[in-house]
Design a protein around this nucleic acid. Structure first.
Length: 385
DNA sequence: TCTGGGGTCCTAGGACCC
DNA sequence: TCTGGGGTCCTAGGACCC
């Protein structure tokens, strides 16, 4: 029986806009938000003064301005946020090597075995908050719990600048009346489906028979039941064991909806170049190209093509995405185009063991087929003799 | 609420092979 | 010629997250 795990979830408060407030003191105390550069961009981060106006991430800039005409808008600077985040992750790694980077502004820590070194979890959490405040001028919220799911819930419940410990004995009480959509992984659609079954709270979800949930939701049903009970065994994946990326893509919402082939071709070319530059920079080759097209009515389709040869060349990616683009009929003006490359392989690591095995398997099968047709030992490994 | 841009994972049907 | 079942890959779409 291993120790009860102690997991932290660290979540930066209104990360992007907080970084901007730190660097531009005159914004502080006023409603402000970070947005994209185009006229059709959305809010990516709103400060706590803007939130009472109903402004939140994902809202269009137009709508946000309508709700709060005095809103201060700052164009986002992604590289600045990435650099800030990486310094924060370095601070976290000073407390334990078991740090999972969950997104640009979130991390999980497993401090189960570092308890002896620094005394109580609460003490460690306060130390982390203090260092982030001192060194980066930023606040964060921390949830402490026996698993990732509850740690995440804890940080979410005590925002901003919060600290919440969920002890094993308190789990039932905390989940009893908590709406299911507060849990990470239960979005609007799942929440609606659950409501139609009369399940509104985590307490109710935990009491729902597993058979009912699996019948309705398939494999996710098991996960849902556990979530309702506050159980979660998903392991923490330290930053140095993170898997490689599975896809690399870029997309852009055009300034105006259009069907002009010259304009669209140019955008496809730029997106392809952008994707290929990133692939080369990060050392990837890919074998599948996916084109995304969103029309003016928001109807969105994707079409993909698996290549016979892997590539990271911009002109190759462009050639394939254009071919896909031209195979579609495009009945309406286009709002967004996206190009994604997947089935990635990291440069240098020739073939993974799995792929090597697969190659060998398919070679073996080919030999079998020939031997089946022409009799045994027509083909064999040269090394046999 | 006229709705960005970066991703991940899951599902389900069809092709194809044995 | 017709039949069946299993496995894998490809494809398109959808839910979810930050």
């Amino acid at each position: 029986m291993r120790n009860e795990r102690t997991i932290f979830h660290i979540d930066m408060d209104a990360f992007f806009i907080s970084v901007e407030e730190r660097d531009r003191p005159w914004i502080r105390g006023k409603p402000a938000a970070v947005c994209g550069s185009s006229s059709r961009s959305v809010i990516t981060s709103a400060n706590y003064q803007a939130r009472p106006f109903g402004i939140h991430a994902g809202m269009s800039v137009k709508e946000a301005k309508r709700r709060c005409p005095s809103l201060i808008l700052v164009e986002g600077d992604h590289s600045k946020y990435t650099e800030t985040a990486s310094r924060i992750f370095t601070i976290l790694k000073g407390f334990t090597p078991l740090v999972e980077v969950a997104s640009i502004d979130e991390a999980y820590l497993d401090i189960t075995d570092s308890l002896l070194l620094f005394c109580s979890p609460l003490h460690i959490a306060q130390g982390i908050k203090e260092r982030i405040r001192k060194e980066e001028g930023l606040t964060c919220s921390i949830g402490i719990a026996p698993n990732k799911m509850l740690a995440k819930l804890g940080s979410r419940l005590k925002k901003p600048d919060g600290l919440m410990v969920i002890h094993k004995e308190e789990i039932g009480e905390i989940l009893k009346d908590l709406p299911v959509e507060k849990l990470h992984g239960i979005g609007p659609k799942l929440a609606e489906s659950l409501k139609s079954l009369g399940i509104f709270t985590c307490g109710e979800l935990g009491r729902t028979p597993l058979t009912l949930l699996t019948k309705r939701f398939g494999v996710i049903g098991e996960r849902l039941k556990e979530m309702g009970l506050g159980k979660d065994e998903t392991p923490l994946i330290p930053f140095d064991q993170k898997e490689e990326a599975k896809s690399i893509g870029h997309s852009v919402t055009l300034e105006e909806d259009t069907l002009d082939p010259q304009k669209l071709k140019k955008v496809l070319f730029q997106l392809s170049e952008k994707v290929s530059r990133r692939m080369r920079k990060e050392g990837y080759y890919g074998k599948r190209v996916t084109l995304t097209v969103r029309y003016c009515d928001f109807y969105t389709l994707t079409k993909q093509k698996t290549l016979s040869e892997e590539t990271h060349s911009g002109s190759e990616i462009f050639r394939h995405s254009l071919e896909i683009f031209e195979s579609l009929s495009h009945p309406k003006p286009i709002r967004l185009l996206g190009v994604t490359v997947s089935l990635l392989r990291k440069e240098g690591v020739q073939l993974s063991l799995f792929e090597k095995k697969e190659k060998r398997e398919s070679l073996l099968k080919a030999m079998d087929r020939i031997n089946d047709r022409f009799g045994d030992w027509t083909l064999t490994w040269a090394g046999l003799y």
